[in-house]
Each structure stands twice: as C-alpha cells, then as structure tokens.
Design a protein around this nucleic acid. Structure first.
Length: 117
DNA sequence: GTTGTGACGACTT
DNA sequence: AAAGTCGCCACAA
C-alpha cells in the first residue's frame, strides 16, 4: 500500500497547476489551497514524486521566505532559479525580488503576499 | 518501534 | 534581523 493517499497528492498537484505564469506561491499556501492546512512538507514531497508527464509549474513554489528550498548549489536549485528568471522574476541575496518583477507587477498580490515593510 | 532527515512554517528569543 | 524551538509528517535505515 502506498504511504500517502494518492488523492491528496492529486489535490496538491492541481493546486500547483493553478499558479498563473509570472506568479509564485509558498508551500504552505499550496497546502492550504489543497485543503491540507499545516501540511506544507507534504507539498514538498508531492512535488518530489510528481510525474514529469504532468508538467507542473513546480518552480513557482517557494518557501515562506521567498527563497528556493532545494539545496543551494544543487542542480534543481539552479534549474528553478533559471525558470523563475525566465518568467520575469529577479533574485536579491537568494530571495525573490518582488519589487523588480517585470511584466505585470499588479498581479503579484494574488497568490503570494510576502511582508512588504 | 525508534531515529534521523527534509523541496515547510509559525512562534519565540 | 537571525537563530532557535516546536509542530508537522513521509520515508529510509
């Protein structure tokens, strides 16, 4: 028997698939949207085991600090950074730079709302 | 069953 | 701001 209910994974994949191009969301936010509050770690797991055939925009999922959670220096880390920059995002000291987001800056508030201060 | 690890996050020092 | 603590839980050893 599979450890995690397949249905839960599918709900998470669906939530990830719903992130619009040019926007990002946190693991916690995806978990919430999938009806699984407090299961942020499961989202990470779901992305790890997601079939490539689903072609999910997995790179649009960042941690609550706006940073890439894949190990710094790893293949996946750079891959994710490249994909995000390809969608108009810029990074500042390892953190996504919300202010410099090009294209449609007014859409940034929809999914991910980092602290502005 | 127990322990350690991790693509997390909220809270407290 | 940065680091520590705790809750969370799937998975491997």
């Amino acid at each position: 028997m599979a450890g995690v209910d397949r249905k839960l994974l599918e709900r998470i994949w669906k939530a990830v698939r719903a992130i619009p191009r040019g926007q990002v969301a946190s693991y916690g936010e995806i978990a919430r949207r999938a009806g699984l509050p407090r299961r942020a770690r499961l989202v990470g797991h779901a992305l790890k085991v997601a079939p490539a055939s689903l072609k999910l925009p997995w790179h649009r999922v960042l941690n609550s600090k706006g940073m890439i959670s894949l190990p710094a220096g790893s293949r996946g880390h750079r891959r994710q950074r490249d994909l995000l920059e390809g969608e108009g995002h810029r990074f500042r000291r390892g953190r996504i730079d919300h202010e410099a987001a090009g294209g449609a800056p007014d859409l940034d508030e929809l999914l991910w709302r980092p602290r502005r201060d």
